[in-house]
């Protein structure tokens, strides 16, 4: 029996604590993901390719890249998170695991939070780790790269959390991928603005503490609200099918 079909928590063990259930969901998602490594690599490859398009399509000049670099990296990261969102619930939806998850005695939004955290560790975190390399390639200076990584570190979990709402809403629909982008991109705009704005301020030598604090506030807001919305959306989507 492999991890995909194994029930998460046996029904008779009803006394499983919420934290244990969250940990089980998290570690299962990690395990499943590492068995399909290509799915992990795809968003990263996409990220690198989108960044490559800009010097080729616009201009390889150092001055342009230095100015636009942070924006390019942020847009590319946003798009590759968007690309990976379809997988967040899809497999579990197809094999019925998701219905089991909804039926658990533990609150669904916490399990969704655990799933989203796993999604971030699998896609957002690698993007953050890859960003310095690409930052060097677009001629950002050291300080800007550090700030860029910091904003990505705070910003990509927000992208995953908001994205979870969209992924839950479009679950099981035809052409879910395009619809998901339509629903989610407007909601990503504030994160993008503050992400790139913070780096722009750092490049000009301005203090960035306030901006980083604001992004942190976004993250806190997203952690507290998005799992509820995503859990509600999941229940709707499951009752639909």
């Amino acid at each position: 029996m492999n991890a995909e079909t194994r029930p998460l928590i046996k029904p008779q063990e009803s006394a499983v604590s919420t934290v244990a259930a969250m940990r089980a969901v998290f570690s299962r998602d990690m395990k499943v993901a590492f068995r399909q490594r290509q799915d992990l690599l795809n968003p990263l490859l996409f990220f690198v390719m989108v960044v490559t398009l800009f010097p080729l399509g616009v201009s390889p000049e150092v001055s342009f890249l230095r100015e636009a670099g942070a924006g390019i990296l942020w847009v590319a990261a946003l798009l590759s998170v968007l690309l990976s969102l379809d997988h967040l619930f899809r497999h579990d939806f197809d094999d019925g695991t998701l219905e089991q998850l909804v039926l658990q005695p533990q609150p669904l939004f916490l399990l969704v939070l655990a799933k989203t955290l796993a999604h971030w560790v699998l896609t957002g975190l690698p993007l953050v780790l890859l960003a310095p390399v690409l930052g060097v390639m677009v001629h950002l200076d050291g300080n800007s790269i550090a700030v860029l990584c910091l904003t990505l570190l705070i910003g990509t979990p927000v992208l995953s959390l908001i994205g979870a709402i969209g992924a839950a809403l479009t679950l099981g629909l035809r052409s879910a991928g395009v619809l998901l982008s339509l629903l989610i991109i407007p909601l990503y705009i504030p994160v993008l603005i503050f992400g790139t704005g913070t780096v722009a301020a750092a490049t000009e030598g301005a203090p960035v503490g306030a901006y980083v604090a604001l992004m942190g506030a976004f993250l806190v807001l997203a952690i507290t609200l998005a799992p509820f919305a995503a859990a509600a959306a999941l229940k709707i989507s499951l009752s639909n099918s």
């Binding site: 709402i165 809403l169 629903l183 705009i189 504030p190 704005g197 609200l225 919305a229 959306a233 989507s237």
Partner: peptide, 22 residues
């Protein structure tokens, strides 16, 4: 589903407005 989406949107509207102004 639309209700959830619109509610998420309405929470975001002030944030979007503020960030766009900034």
């Amino acid at each position: 589903a639309v209700a959830v989406l619109v509610l998420v949107g309405v929470v975001n509207i002030p944030i979007i407005k503020y960030s766009v102004e900034w």
